[in-house]
Design a protein around this nucleic acid. Structure first.
Lengths: 225, 225
DNA sequence: TTATATTTGTGTAATAAATACGCAAATAAA
DNA sequence: TTTATTTGCGTATTTATTACACAAATATAA
């Protein structure tokens, strides 16, 4: 049997949300192949680190960002996906809060930028397909897991959540029914604080109660929009 | 940077169903480590084959089985999961029809056997965790994708489908409502043939119409139990 | 200061979907 | 020929989803 010579990398599709726009974090590659082309951040796995550690390390090195939520997306293993030879990549799916939005300082990449998911550049390797799969996962998953909160500030007005859902699902949602549904799930705490932004009645701030969610989940209550 | 020395393998959790029992295909390992212990079939990926090809090849070599449905499950990459060194494994999830049930002739394994998922032996490596994840995937997925049919003969009486669902979901289902629901999805063709098995009124045979399902799916109709 | 625009917050009636439920028909076995 | 077993089917009740409008609180403009 021939010696196996397959390289292993991780890639991360990181989403952020602000002002009604879903963005994804891309880097401009510093080296060949695809030098100076846009790509999903990622890189080779070190021998003694876990896959998640590899993702977090690469994100740190290339974008300086710290991630708020991370899950495995899919493993891409087509033998021709990398011109350098056989590279199998385990793709991850990440979410960051708005406050993490600005603070990146790339060292290993020529540039780092947020791109609106509707205005994407052409991507390196099979990263277009990876990104597509991640978008589908995000859209599907917010309807049955409370991951939307991971894209909002810790405290948020209800209208932010509503806007996030209409944006992600790409359709209008009845404001009253949505509020009833979400508050009925009993996983949001209403705070005493109010937030005024511009004109209009000030909004109560809410906070996702993860502990209560896990408890309810254990009891068999399912999050569903 | 140190040279990467990570090996890549695939493993397949293959489920079968017969007479109200869900089984999983296991092999007895022929070599160290875990020699003569039970494990999920799998092995190292060759340099120039896709991941799916690797799975199908290994299944063929170790169990002689040909699979009916295959999808990626999850990639397991804990640095300590294999005593031989760093081995990252991409786990797959497969289903076979009852007629494929008997015909295996192992060459690369000391033994091959179907085990009821409720009477499993202790497994090698982290295969217990992989299998657990596969069972959860199977249980979840039959409620929102028509994969249950992949576990039945091509033509089946309705009661077989009902039994499969009660078994997998682990709870009773109202027979009339279930039938209404499934037939209402309009993805089953009722054949002219009848099947008599033992006593009782003979049952009409049904067939899953995959083409119609894909069409309906494209139109936005969702399969859901 | 007052009027206007903007955003938040809330309840109920109408419609649709899910659930509960029992008996007759067709066959094999006794 | 009687009995046991399995299939096939309809309707009423309950529950969940959807549609829909106006008052309260603030900022801004007049």
């Amino acid at each position: 049997m021939n010696k196996q010579s397959i390289k292993l990398s991780v890639d991360a599709v990181v989403f952020g949300y602000e002002a009604g726009k879903i963005s994804v974090l891309l880097i401009k590659r510093k080296f060949e192949p695809f030098k100076n082309h846009w790509a999903i951040p990622g890189g080779f796995v070190l021998n003694d680190e876990s896959l998640e550690e590899a993702v977090e390390r690469e994100l740190q090195e290339e974008t300086g960002i710290t991630i708020n939520y991370l899950e495995q997306l899919y493993t891409f293993g087509d033998p021709t996906r990398d011109p350098r030879g056989r590279v199998v990549s385990i793709a991850y799916f990440g979410l960051v809060r708005p406050d993490a939005f600005k603070l990146f300082a790339s060292t290993d990449a020529a540039a780092v930028e947020w791109f609106n998911i509707h205005e994407l550049p052409k991507l390196s390797f099979d990263h277009g397909a990876i990104l597509q799969k991640a978008i589908l996962r995000l859209q599907a998953k917010i309807t049955y897991e409370p991951i939307g909160f991971e894209l909002l500030d810790n405290k948020f007005p209800f209208s932010d959540l509503e806007k996030l859902y209409t944006t992600l699902l790409g359709r209008d949602i009845d404001r009253r029914n949505f509020r009833k549904r979400i508050l009925g799930l009993n996983v949001l705490d209403e705070l005493d604080e109010k937030l005024s932004k511009g004109s209009g009645r000030p909004a109560s701030l809410f906070q996702f109660n993860q502990k209560r969610y896990f408890q309810l989940k254990k009891d068999g209550i399912v999050f569903e929009i």
